[in-house]
Write a protein that binds this DNA or RNA. Structure first.
Length: 617
DNA sequence: AACTTCACG
DNA sequence: ACGTACGTGAAGTTT
């Protein structure tokens, strides 16, 4: 037995690493006694983060309570692995920090189904996010184990991740290669592996107490654990990549990027990705750049370059001026590079041996509770089908996308009790369009498509908290037009401003934290409390999607789910049953929210995701 | 690490 | 006192 000692919050704690059968029997004895006393903290160390890539393996499994940790050398196989598996299967209360990762590692590499472990898990990361959802960059603690442990357990708690990076470097390894390359019995590696479960075990009761003190309901905590398990389920299923399509696409886009970069080089821009070089060259050509970035530099983003290239927002020629060839080349080089590198190449490089992408779905990523997804799958270009064409439904399946209709506007109407908006949503049929309704309400039956566009801008401006200048820029209308529209909008829907003031006041009285309809804590930034309207709507929409996911699971449709996308559920379903399954998805996403109907439309495509965006396959 | 840009809802 | 577009992930360049 290897034994390491450390001090946490003034207590001596012990990390034990069983080496032989007698040591493992000692572990077993501890495990039974500890399990009777309370929950067991669990963690794993692995060769990296890409759970589904070939060669990936599980190195250690750690168990612990507030004072003791046991690091089982899973990589050794035999009795070590056997004891680890047996213990995990016998756990009845498990504490894991960021459980989805360990669930999936154990599911894929230790034969322990995610469903069985999820049932018994408390995820300390979920507890932390419900207490304060802000990231460190937003003045929050964040939800990583180290800062949480430092804040709630012991300010001197070791930075096990940072500390290991140093060890990796001293061994000639990097942050990336170290996890696989460090010798299994490296003392720092084993000590830190053990400390992580001890910290998790100490974190949980403190966070639980705080959750109760703040009045966060158990229902919300349980709901988030259900959602987390469903997200892990979707991550495990993954999405199929059409490699025969993606590989030539990546090559074509790389060639295109190179071709336009060569054009830019002729104008003195060696790197199209350097805003400073682009700005210098454009100014040198006599263009007048006026927009500034937040940091004060000359801006050279799309909104600046498109007009210089005489292109509108859809990249169509305007005919207002002679296109600047450099602006045109930079735009095209950057787009081709972005699409090629971030999407096409990434699909190929991130695909598992079975040709699937397994995006990490983070159920509580945003401060509003919104989910986030890795591998760029939330940000695939929607203006065109070429990228989405590379993602496929299962063999014999088709893609089904079901999305809420104008969910944030409906949520706004419901939460702020906007009388005339509610009336519209209640009386409107399947074709109801809130922006046309608003335009007609204000302008009468003579409302034009342009009026619709202006009032759509005003509506989003209200939800986002935008000003007249920004809405004007977004919609392309003049500031005078927008000012008038916003004034008319406020007269038509006076409840929105009143709700904003009321919600800001409530937040102020609650220490600058707004409590959402579902009991979610939404901290506001002092210098932009107006964003409470957006936070309330965004987080309520997220909770409708989460509730819809619960309906989906109850209806037996979880196996078809592939991705949540804020107001949409993407699914892969057998072609023959697609119509029926699509109707089921719509049903799962239908609600009555304080008298406002929340409705969803399912679209059935072909084999590829791109088929819903114009591709013919 | 900070900044900038670009892709989405 | 007044007014403020919201929320993400990923990649490239510069410091």
């Amino acid at each position: 037995m290897k034994i390491y000692r450390h001090e946490i919050a003034g207590d001596r704690v012990t990390v034990r690493v069983p080496e032989d059968a007698a040591d493992l029997r000692e572990f077993w004895q501890w495990f039974y006694e500890a399990r009777a006393r309370g929950p067991i903290a669990l963690d794993t160390e692995t060769t990296g983060l890409d759970i589904y890539t070939p060669g990936y393996s599980l190195r250690t499994v750690q168990f612990g309570d507030a004072h003791n940790a046991w690091v089982l050398l899973y990589e050794r196989g035999g009795w070590h692995a056997q004891y680890a598996r047996e213990a995990i299967q016998r756990c009845r209360q498990v504490l894991i920090h960021n459980a989805a990762f360990d669930w999936l590692v154990l599911d894929e590499h230790a034969g322990i189904p995610l469903e069985s472990l999820a049932e018994w898990t408390t995820d300390t990361r979920i507890l932390a996010a419900l207490i304060d959802p802000r990231q460190p960059s937003e003045a929050g603690i964040g939800t990583a184990l180290k800062p949480l442990a430092a804040h709630w357990v012991d300010p001197a708690a070791p930075d096990t991740q940072g500390g290991l990076t140093k060890v990796f470097n001293s061994l000639g390894l990097t942050k990336e290669t170290g996890w696989a390359g460090i010798p299994l019995t490296h003392p720092t590696y084993l000590l830190y592996a053990g400390l992580d479960v001890i910290l998790t075990a100490r974190l949980e009761p403190v966070l639980r107490r705080e959750i109760r003190r703040l009045g966060v309901r158990d229902e919300l905590v349980n709901y988030e654990h259900e959602i987390a398990a469903m997200c892990a389920h979707m991550q495990r299923a993954g999405l199929l990549v059409d490699q025969e399509y993606a590989a030539p696409l990546a090559a074509r886009l790389a060639e295109e990027a190179e071709r336009f970069a060569a054009v830019a080089a002729r104008y003195g821009v060696a790197s199209v990705g350097s805003p400073a070089q682009v700005a210098d060259a454009l100014v040198g050509m006599g263009e007048r750049l006026t927009e500034r970035t937040k940091g004060g530099a000359l801006a050279t983003d799309k909104t600046v370059l498109l007009p210089l290239a005489d292109l509108d927002r859809d990249w169509q020629r305007i005919g207002a001026r002679a296109p600047n060839p450099l602006a045109d080349a930079v735009l095209r080089a950057k787009r081709a590079s972005k699409w090629g590198v971030t999407y096409a190449e990434a699909f190929l490089s991130k695909a598992s041996g079975a040709g699937r992408i397994h995006p990490a779905i983070s159920p509580l990523a945003a401060r509003t509770g919104r989910m986030s997804v890795t591998a760029g799958l939330h940000q695939l270009p929607s203006s065109d089908h070429v990228i989405r064409r590379a993602i496929l439904a299962e063999p014999g399946h088709v893609v089904i996308s079901t999305d809420f209709q104008a969910v944030e506007m409906r949520v706004l109407a419901a939460l702020a009790k906007v009388r005339r908006m509610v009336e519209g949503f209640v009386s409107g049929g399947a074709e109801f369009d809130i922006h046309t309704y608003t335009a007609k309400l204000i302008k009468g039956e003579r409302a034009t498509p342009k009026d619709r566009k202006v009032f759509k801008g005003a509506g989003f401006g209200k939800v986002y908290g935008g000003g007249i200048a920004t809405i004007a820029k977004q919609t392309g209308a003049t500031e005078a037009e927008i000012a008038q529209a916003v004034a008319a909008y406020d007269r038509a829907f006076p409840e929105i401003k009143r709700a904003s003031s009321r919600w800001q006041r409530q937040a102020f009285q609650n220490g600058m934290v707004f409590i959402s309809a579902t009991g979610r804590r939404l901290p506001l930034d002092r210098d932009r409390t107006y964003s409470v309207v957006n936070y309330a709507c965004q987080s309520a929409a997220r909770d409708l999607l989460g509730q819809a996911m619960l309906h989906v699971k109850a209806a037996g449709l979880l196996e078809y789910c592939r991705l949540p996308i804020h107001d949409e559920l993407l699914a892969s379903a057998p072609k023959r049953e697609a119509a029926e399954i699509a109707r089921e998805f719509e049903k799962c996403m239908t609600f009555d929210l304080y008298g406002v109907p929340i409705v969803a439309d399912a679209e059935i495509g072909g084999r590829s995701w791109g088929s819903l965006y114009g591709a013919d396959y």
